[in-house]
């Protein structure tokens, strides 16, 4: 894993490793009917090792969000299979193995931060008492650095703080996987950097497996262990890039020559991913 490898476009991995938590094989998604039929994703092979941090990057409309929804069990693939620790995404979701974070924090404006953090858990586990839920919510807020804001309503929180609550809400489920769809996409550049750094620290402290959809090259390289580049028309994984920069990484990682080299390399991959893919 420390050696950077570039997989040829459309190539399948030689084998699925045993420590893979997520594995998708030959996943295609077709949406619409008749004339409007559209191939959103074609023949996606993806494996995410347990405890890894993987980013999906690609141009708008490449289906990276759809791929995340397939992993979350929210979109059923038209063909191919997905397994999360040997379970289907739907089963995994029912076992609280999947934590979701979207671009919009989607907090409930009538609940304070701690109740928002425990909101999904309260539905997933109906046996938990109110005080146990509160305690769990508070614990998660502490983890994301918002322990002091437990009693604030969403309209009293900044965009970055709201997104921290959304992450706390996902973590409260104690999921095996954190699936994040452009979670910092609506934040300003400075907050975005801070959030990325916080996410790295949370990842290292909790050991969760994280799949991050992003359109930021810097973010993908700064945070992840592996980046998959998606191409457009149809959405498919064109290339993958292992990020060999050692952890723990902080903001200064961006000054390392290797970082700059990776940025250039990833930018080149993205450029070629814009070309519609024929048979390859």
């Amino acid at each position: 894993m420390q050696v950077e490898t570039i997989r040829p476009a459309g190539g399948r991995p030689a084998h699925i490793r045993h420590d893979d938590l997520i594995s998708a094989q030959g996943v295609s998604v077709v949406m619409g009917a008749d004339q409007n039929r559209q191939l959103i994703l074609r023949d996606i092979d993806l494996s995410v090792p347990k405890g890894s941090f993987v980013s999906l990057i690609g141009p708008s409309g490449c289906g990276k969000s759809t791929l995340l929804k397939v992993l979350a069990g929210l979109v059923r693939p038209s063909s191919g299979s997905v397994s999360i620790a040997g379970l289907s995404p739907g089963e995994a979701a029912r076992k609280r193995m999947i934590g979701l974070v979207f671009q919009d924090a989607n907090l409930l404006p009538w609940k304070n931060a701690v109740d928002n953090a425990s909101m999904l858990l309260s539905i997933a586990d109906r046996s938990m008492s109110r005080s146990a839920l509160r305690a769990r919510g508070q614990e998660m807020l502490d983890l994301v650095g918002l322990g002091d804001a437990a009693h604030k309503r969403p309209n009293e929180l900044s965009g970055g703080m709201r997104q921290r609550v959304a992450i706390a809400r996902a973590l409260a489920l104690d999921p095996a996987v954190l699936l994040m769809d452009e979670p910092f996409g609506a934040l300003d550049a400075i907050t975005r950097d801070q959030m990325g750094q916080s996410l790295l620290e949370i990842w290292q402290r909790t050991g969760k497996t994280i799949v991050l959809v992003t359109h930021s090259i810097d973010e993908a390289i700064h945070l992840s262990r592996q980046v998959h580049v998606l191409g457009i028309n149809p959405g498919r994984i064109t290339q993958s890039l292992d990020i060999s920069l050692p952890y723990p990484r902080d903001a200064s990682v961006a000054e390392v020559p290797e970082f700059v080299r990776l940025v250039l390399q990833l930018r080149g991959m993205l450029r070629s991913s814009h070309q519609p893919g024929g048979v390859s």
Binding site: K69, A72, G73, L74, A93, R94, R96, I98, L100, F102, Q103, D104, N106, L120, L121, I123, A124, L173
Partner: peptide, 14 residues
Amino acid sequence: VDRSLLALMNSVGA
């Protein structure tokens, strides 16, 4: 209600 909030709810089997 925002669709992604509904997706969150569905993801925990609400």
